[in-house]
Amino acid sequence: MERKAEVLWRGNLQQGQGEVSTESGALKKVPYSLMRRFGNEPGTNPEELIAAAHSSCFAMALAAALTQQGITPESLQVNAAVSIEKNGNDWVITHSNLVLRAKIPGIDQNRFNSIAEEAKNNCPVSRLLDTEISLDATLDEGELRAQH
């Protein structure tokens, strides 16, 4: 299986701009630039895309691990924060922090923690990233809401 994305960049780093599109069409000419990466201009940036990939991959890995044990989650809400820092002359992705709020009937905290940690370690995106990955996992009895 292979998934594809395409980028078109125009100009130098400071004033230039790019567009990113995905084969599926989920992203179509979404703008990105230096100011979108290190500022707050509308558009996207590589770290945001990595955070989206990591959180969605982890949620699927956790759902798979739970399913293998005969457990069906009611909901898994995952947020990822990917950090980039200057290291000498280079920029380095230093950390990906996964925050999970899960509603899973009939599971105890220890089993939940163990399965979630295993899913974090075995998620294909986690395996791809050469950085520290942390997980803050909470079993939540309340109603989960999508965060934007």
Rank of each mutant, 00 (worst) to 15 (best):
E2N: 08
E2S: 06
A5P: 02
E6M: 10
L8R: 15
W9M: 14
W9D: 12
G11Q: 07
L13A: 11
Q14R: 10
Q14V: 12
G16P: 06
G18I: 06
G18V: 00
E19K: 15
E19A: 13
V20E: 06
V20Q: 05
S21Y: 10
T22R: 02
E23H: 09
G25P: 05
G25T: 08
A26G: 04
K28C: 01
K29Q: 15
V30G: 01
Y32L: 15
Y32C: 13
Y32M: 14
M35V: 10
M35K: 13
M35I: 05
R37P: 10
G39P: 08
G43Y: 10
T44G: 06
N45Y: 08
P46K: 02
P46Q: 01
E47T: 08
E47I: 10
E48F: 01
I50E: 01
I50K: 02
A51W: 10
A52E: 12
A52Y: 00
A53T: 07
H54V: 03
S55I: 00
C57N: 00
F58L: 04
F58T: 02
F58V: 07
M60N: 00
A61H: 01
L62Q: 00
A63I: 02
A64C: 00
A64M: 12
A64H: 09
L66Q: 07
L66A: 06
T67G: 11
T67Q: 12
Q68F: 05
Q69M: 11
Q69T: 10
G70A: 09
I71A: 07
I71E: 08
I71M: 09
T72I: 14
T72L: 13
P73V: 08
E74A: 15
L76R: 02
Q77T: 00
N79T: 12
A80H: 02
A80Q: 08
E85S: 14
E85N: 14
K86I: 11
K86G: 09
K86M: 12
G88V: 01
G88K: 09
G88D: 12
G88P: 09
D90Y: 12
D90W: 11
D90T: 13
W91V: 03
W91E: 11
V92P: 03
N97M: 05
N97I: 00
L100G: 05
L100V: 09
R101N: 12
G106M: 04
I107N: 09
I107Q: 10
D108S: 13
Q109R: 15
Q109W: 03
N110C: 05
N110I: 09
R111W: 05
S114H: 14
I115A: 03
A116S: 06
A116T: 01
A116Y: 01
A116F: 04
E118C: 00
A119K: 03
N121H: 06
N121R: 14
N122R: 11
C123F: 07
C123Q: 08
P124F: 01
S126R: 02
S126L: 03
S126E: 03
R127I: 08
D130F: 00
D130M: 08
T131N: 14
A137D: 05
A137I: 06
L139W: 13
D140N: 14
H148N: 14
